[in-house]
Structures are given as C-alpha cells and as structure tokens.
Write a protein that binds this DNA or RNA. Sequence first.
RNA 1: AGGCCCGUGGCGGAAUUGGCAGACGCAGCGGACUUAAAAUCCGCAGAGCUAACCCUCAUCCGGGUUCAAGUCCCGGCGGGCCUACCA
Length: 943
Amino acid sequence: MVESEIIHRYDAKCAGEIETHWQAQWSRDDAFRTSNPGEAGFDATRPKFYILDMFPYPSGAGLHVGHPEGYTATDILTRYKLMRGFNVLHPMGWDAFGLPAEQYAVQTGVHPAITTRKAIDTFRRQLQRLGFRYDWSREFGTIDPDYYRWTQSIWLRAYRSYYDASKGQARPIAELEAKLEKEDRVIAVTVAEVGAVESSILSEQKWSLCTPIQKQSYLDTHRLAYLGVQTVNWCPALGTVLANEEIVDGRSERGGHPVFRMPLRQWMFRITAYAQRLLDDLDLVEWPESTRTMQAAWIGRSEGAEVRFAVDGFGDLTVFTTRPDTLFGATYMVVAPEHPFVEWVRDRAPKNHQAIADYVQWSRNRSDIDRQAESREKTGISLGVSARNPANGELIQVWTADYVLMAYGTGAIMAVPAHDTRDFAFAKRFDLPIRCVVAATDGSAWTGELATSEAGTACNSRNDRISLDGLSTSDATTKMIEWLTSCGLGFRRINFRLRDWLFSRQRYWGEPFPIVFDDRGMHYPIAESSLPVELPSLADYEPVQSDHPVPPLGKAKEWVHTTAGEAGVDPTLLDPSTRVRRETNTMPGWAGSCWYYLRYCDPKNSSRFVGKEAERYWMGDRGVDLYIGGAEHAVLHLLYSRFWHKMLYDLGEVGTPEPFAKLFHQGMITSFAFERADGSLIATDGVREESGSWREIATNEPVTRVIAKMSKSLKNVVTPDEVVAEYGADTLRLYEMYMGPLADSKPWNTRDIAGVFRFLQRVWRLVVDERTGALMFARIANPEIERQLHRTIQKVAQDIERLAMNTAIAALIELVNLATRPTQMKDPADGGLTLDQMRRFLCALAPFAPHIAEELWHQIGETSSMGNASWPAVDETQLVDEMIELPVQIQGKVRARVAVPSGADATEIEKLVLADAKVRELLEGRVPKKVIVVPKRMVNVLV
RNA sequence: AGGCCCGUGGCGGAAUUGGCAGACGCAGCGGACUUAAAAUCCGCAGAGCUAACCCUCAUCCGGGUUCAAGUCCCGGCGGGCCUACCA
C-alpha cells in the first residue's frame, strides 16, 4: 500500500497548485504586459496583431461557462502569435453602464456603482483564474470617469460636425456656419419655438435675419448628434421609454402597465447620413456572410422614385415607391396616421372629423409590434379627399391606415393593389378599385385573385405623352422616372430602411450628456477642458412615475440647476453667470462599446482619446485583426461602432475606414434538459439514467434528452468555478475547445470532461514518474514519434490559424497516445519523448494548457518562461512519407490498396497499380477501359 | 410569410479542395495487472449476414450531375437563427 502511494500525480489538487503558482509568478513578472511604440521593451521589427474579445457586461452572477469559450480561443491565438514573433495586443475591460445594473440596484437597494464594481472584481478574479493572457495594465471600465470623459468628448465631436453630402464625409459644423454667414444663404426656418416638428416650416429667410434660436434649429437639422423628435413608447408607470420588444398588447411586458406612443425630443445620431458607406464598406471586411447580410438588410437600401400627387388646396402629397412603373395602376393613396396631411384634412372635414381623430388616436396607442402582426386584418379610414394620379389624371381617394409607417419613405404611399400584396388586401377589405398594369411574362391573363408583384410587361399604362405598354418592368421603371423628372412630377430616389439612432435614455446609470440649456431652450456644449461631466452620486435613482418623462437625474436638483461657468461652458459662447439646466437624459448602454477597442491602444492617455502613434500602430491598415464575440451583436453594436469609427475617420482621428478587419462569432454553449411525452421540460435533477435511457423520478415515465439553453429553472447551469475546482483551469480550457467547432452551438456534457483531463494526466506521466517524481526521457528519438511530432506541430499551427482548436487538440492527443505506447515504455528510460522532443511538444501544448506546460517546461530544466519561447520549427522532409498506400477502386468501389512512392506521377502510379497482383486478380483478365489517377489520393480502374 | 444556416454511430464530433466515411473523445464490451476494487494499459466497437473472411447496406428522405457525392444541383421532411406591412 505504501509503495503504491502516488504522490506526484496530476490530479485536481496538483493542477490547482500549479495553476495558482504560475499565475502568481506571471503576475509578479508582469509577463502579460505589452509595450506601445516608443516605450521601453517595444520591438518595432515585429509585426503587430490585435486580438479582441467583445468585452463582457459584468453581472452579479459571475461568469458562466459560455464566457470563457471565446476568451479561450483568443488566448490560444494570442499565445501562439507571440511564439510566432508578433507584438500582440490582447486587452480586456468592462461594459458596465446600462439597464440591467440599474434594475438590479433598484431591486436590491444597493447603489449600481457598488454592485457593478463588485461584479467587475468577480469577473476579473474568475478570468485571471483561467490564466488568460490579457494585458491587465490596459484594463478599464466604461463607467470610469477617465474613460467616459472621452465618450463624451467623441459625442461632442459628432455634435460639432455635420455631414457634407458634396464631399461625402463629416466636416466641422463651423465650416457650414461660416458658409451660411458668408453667403447669407436663404434657409427654411421653423416656428420660433425650439424643437418644432420639421413639417411645420413657416417661411424662408436670410441667415443674417434669423434669430439665434432659428439658427440653432437649422444647425440641428445638420449636426451628426442632434436634438430631434422621435415617436417613443412611453410607460408612465415605469417612468421610462420602452423598446418595442418590451411591449405586449399595448402594455409593458413587465407589470402590464399602459404604454403610450408619444413624440419626444431626444438626442439623435444622424447615422442615416452614413447608410451608403456603411453598406458599401461591408465589402472591406472579412466577416461572416450572415452578419454582413444582416447588416445590409438592416440598412435596407431600395431604389425607386419619389412621386408627387396633387391635392386641391393642400399642394403635393409625396410618396416613395420602388415601382414607379406601376403608377398607372395606383388607384388610391394611403398616408400614415401620424402624417401631417391627416391633421390638415381633419381640420377641413367636419363630417368625419371625429371618426378620423378616433382612428388616429387608436392607432397611435398601438405598438409597432401590434401594428405589424401578420394575422391581423388591415384597418384604415377614408379621409374623404382625392388626389390626382399624375400619370392618368384620375382622381383617387386618399386614406389613412396604420400599415403605412411614418418613419419609412415619406410616410405616404401610392397603392397599386394589383401588384402589391398589402395594397391588395386593403383594397379587397374596403372595396377599392384594382387595375392590372403589369402582364405576366408568360402571357397568361391576370386572375384578379392575388397581387402579382413579380416583374413582367407593362400594360394599360399610356397617356397622351407617355406609353409604357409592352416594356419590361425595368425598362418601364427607367422610362417612367425619366418622364416624371422631365415633368417635374418626381425624381429617382434611393431610400434606406435605416433610421436615425435614438441616443437618449431616461436612465440613471449611463454617461451624462456634456450639454446644458438656457432658459430659452438653447443648448450649449461643455468645453473639452471641463470634461468629464461626472455622473452625480444619487441615493435615489429610481424611475419617476409620471405622465411625462422625467429622467432620474432630474432628482439631482443642485447638479441640474447650475450656471454656465460652473458647468464648464466656454465663456465666449455664454456668459459664465447665466443660469443653465443640465441635460438629464443619459446615453444608452451602447455608447461605451462604440469605441473601446481604440482606447485599449493607449488607455492611459490623458490628452487624447487615443494617441495617434499608438492608434496607427495597433489598428494598422485594417483595424482590429480578429474580433470574437456573440452573434447577438451582429447588427446593433457592430453597426454603431462602424458608424462612430467612420465619423472619427472623416475627422482625421483614426486611420482606417473600418474598425474590425476580421470578425468571428463563437457558438452558444447549451446544456441538456429532459422532455416529457407532452413536450414539457423537466430539470436535470428530476431525472435518472437507467441503462442508457432516462426516466422521470417522480412518475417513472420515460423522457427524452434534449438540448436547451442553460437556465436556473432547468438546473443545468455550469459555472467555471466548479469545473476549475474539480479539474483545474487547463482542463476547462481544453474541454471548451474540444467540444466542437468554435462557431457551432454545442451542449455541455460534464461526463466528457474526464477525457481531456485524462489526456493532461497522460502528458504528465510522459515525463514524470508518479511515484518518485523523477523525470523520464527516451534516450534515442524514435523515428516514428519524431515524424509524428513534426506533423503534429504543423497541424496544430494550421488549425490554430483557422480557429479549429478541436482538431488541434485531437492531434495533440494522438501524438501523446503514440508516445505512451507501452511497447516503447518497457524500459522507462527508453520510452516516451526525448528531452528535445518534450521541449517542442510543450511549445505546441502551451497555448491550450499554459499552466501544465509552463510547469513541465521548468521541470525539464528551462529557466525562462514559456512566454519567451518560439514556435518549434517543422522539418518539411518529415512531413512526407517515402511510400504511400493508395486505395484502388474498381468500378468506383475500393477493392485494393497499393503502395507507391509518394512522389510518383500518374503514369508511374498507373503502371504500378495495374501490375499489382491483387488488382490483376480482381480484374480477372479484363482490360481496363480507363484508369483515373489522382496522385496522393486514389486510383479508379474502369473496365 | 420570407431570407440564411444545419441534419454523419448510443453521445460530442472528424473528413480543410468532390477522392479510403466515422479521426479524437465520452459512454459501452472484452482482456491484462490486483485477494478485490479504483487507477492504468491493451483490444473490440455504424448496421446486416457470418465461426471468421468475404460480401451487402449505410452520412434525414427522393431524384440528378460525375469515373467518384457527407461534400455540388433540384424537390421534400425535420431543427435552428434572423427579419417581419419598409411601399
């Protein structure tokens, strides 16, 4: 018993000791530090590589096993690239402002600043326990005043800029102002009160005659960050604006409170100015096709025309259509209930005034989701007014209906029921005329039973001056646009689905806007030198119940009401003694993540958001070299970041048009759950396994195992902490990578972890005698193992580059299995790997399991850290065999194998194969008609 | 409703470019060692027919292209993701 006691075994305790020992050592040595250009230790001869993880939102629950999946992959690549001689930037930080933290704080009564800091500490500790090689000296959180000072600064840059359409780029708004001043241009001015809806244009006048408020309103219609009116979902009971997804049946999802749609003045971003560039530049990036498609769909470019329909007494009602070729088939019009035309009609139609008002009110209080529900029938009401179809001169009715959206196009449409399914449904419901103006290409007659939106041949489309009849849809479209343009009735237009970005939130836990208002409602920016505008520490940050939005920051009365001087407004803009009111909305959770990748390049810079030299070096020509994160951010975060980046690019602040050269989405880690016959789910602890199948404990009924998301209710959540305690960090890292392809969603199976753990134990035993702790090496390199070692190193390198960590690990396992073959081990001193082989093997293992690799590295006599090691060289000659066995097919079926020299060409191979005894036997004297030879692959003999 | 992606052993998966389907791991079975067990090591392992070899069938189903298809094309079925009255 005593002699069999194994004290030098790689078990959980041993792994834990090794891991914490080396983590402490790396920390003492500052081993993960990366130097910037100009700093001590920076080697300018090395190429750069910037590897970025989407930084986490630290929740109170800590990490779950999904987090380390992407992080392990980037860590492997980081360690590998370092061994390959790159300067690698691999940072980590915290996305820490936002709604969940605030709601958690309201629930627990603990201030979000405290809970968030605590959550960050937990996350950091957990990540460090996994040995990730982050340069922690670059760590920051979006809630750090030193960071959000620059978030505010960049926002101010947008505020002070406009999009110069002629140049196709952002320019300082001072340039626009100077031009207006110099040319004394005539501008459209709105009613005198600030924030009027754009449609209430009253008159036009010269710039020099405008009031300051009119000037500001005008500039606001050009700023990239501007104050504008947007219809929002306002929930008085919750005291906040809600997203569409948070509303069910016109009530809040949480609590079932009523929600009202109301126009609200909010800070917006003019992201629509960048729509075309955001679309075009998707060609510059190496991103998953699905993500690029989603972004393109979100931007939603469509080509068509704007067409004017005359309404007596009103003027022109303008529509956007992608099918101007069907103008002759427009038999009625529809405007959105929010369209100003409705208001105009209502005031002039006393007969159905009330009915129209009721309909508008009713539709206004319906959420977008409600309005868009597929199953519901179309609703609407006739406005009792007619417009003239400019093509055929017919008078057609104008309706209002909520299937037309104010936010898209012009908020009004021409309805062509014969060729649009929505218009068709509406026309059927309200018995409106339908006219076919596009004939099917195959000549078949239109049935009138459903709308045909496909391209075809124009018909019934002629007037005195134009005829489209007989033209294809695309030719008819071109001709119609030309005609409309020549008559001044319309023009070609490209429309985008993308809308401007609502950037205000009625929240406490976010970045304050660096802006103040005077008594007249004019806004003034805070001077750069007075940033940050710090978030005031509030004891009561709960939302306010009200009929009108009251942001929680409004409660900080002393902070809100101040003077221009105290707030830090430039004295040349506003007298310092002027009483001002601070903006009380805050920025949304997305703000901090829009530019964090830039700050990592130079996180301590106190004079710029990022130093130019550091930005140019780390961002290089194409930006971040590899960005890994979840597909849930495929649209919003990535689109917002690209937008900010392009603004900064236009303003000369960054050197690349796109921020992220290559993007990769890791899959989700799921878990198992169990399903009853009726489809209901059972938690894992309510089930027992019985000879390969599962039964519910309570009823003894058989259940099936299914894949489900990890959730508390199903009791199938696994945390890294528990895995580390049972097996160690190296095993967790290895298991997460070995589960399957990084991009796939894969189920966690605790039982499978033993496999990779046993692999690490075999690695350990390869060198360490478990009883004595003595080191064991082969005296002579076994040639088969040597050859396999070269192949493994080669494969691991290739697999890491393409992020196929699972197959890289399989290759490492195969090598270790080969090296531990007991036939090689009869004499311990003669088995396994030589010292030199072990050295090279550990280099290949280190990216995956850095702790055990570092430990063994030192045990075999190395004194410097593995972090300084180079990737082992591969001898090309070891990768090819002299002879290879080719499968030989007869009539397409593998019937024999023939050994041939690996360099043999097709003729040689054919000769060798046909001379082979087995092949001749199988051919039974038949003469081959054709022999297909694919060197190094196979041979197919056809008779 | 539309768009995109995916269906391979009992399970996770491999097959990178159309070229030996099932690497590697888990679970399973048999053996060695042990008084016994654990641990470790060795072997077996898609299905069918076999004592065994052979052979036949086999990558969701049905067609097609090809000397050759898990891989390409067409049609279905099943699952997932996204968008959802965008004129």
